[in-house]
């Protein structure tokens, strides 16, 4: 299964991924993704229905550690690299629309 990927598809994916791409970027990427998807679609030639998927090479699940208090980073160090901070908190742009 390969589906030609359109410029609109890429624009939709870019919105989902929160990347504000220019029109030129979208055009260029649509062409490249078509080539790449054509190549990676080869995985569909082999894997059969009775093969279980592998997400991870280690046979691990639910790794626990003791529930003990340990020192953490601290607010000052955590805020040190913030693009903007105010009153000991991260300062961020508005998250709601004006009319909301």
């Amino acid at each position: 299964m390969t589906t030609a990927i359109t410029r609109d598809d890429v624009a939709h994916l870019a919105r989902l991924a929160r990347i504000a791409m220019t029109d030129d970027e979208l055009d260029h990427l649509a062409q490249q993704l078509d080539v790449i998807l054509g190549a990676v679609a080869r995985v569909q030639e082999v894997a059969a229905a009775d093969i279980p998927p592998t997400s991870h090479s280690l046979d691990l699940s639910n790794v626990y550690r003791p529930d003990e208090l340990v020192p953490s980073l601290g607010a000052e160090a955590a805020l040190d690299a913030a693009p903007a901070a105010e009153d000991g908190r991260f300062r961020v742009p508005r998250i709601l629309d004006e009319e909301a």
Partner: peptide
């Protein structure tokens, strides 16, 4: 908005290959 700042930052801050892989992975 925060979302617009986020999208503008990720456009300016990521290079072509990183964007290519993020979009491929999202797809």
């Amino acid at each position: 908005s925060a979302e617009e700042v986020m999208a503008a930052t990720r456009d300016a801050g990521f290079g072509a290959e990183v964007k290519r892989r993020i979009i491929l992975g999202t797809y």
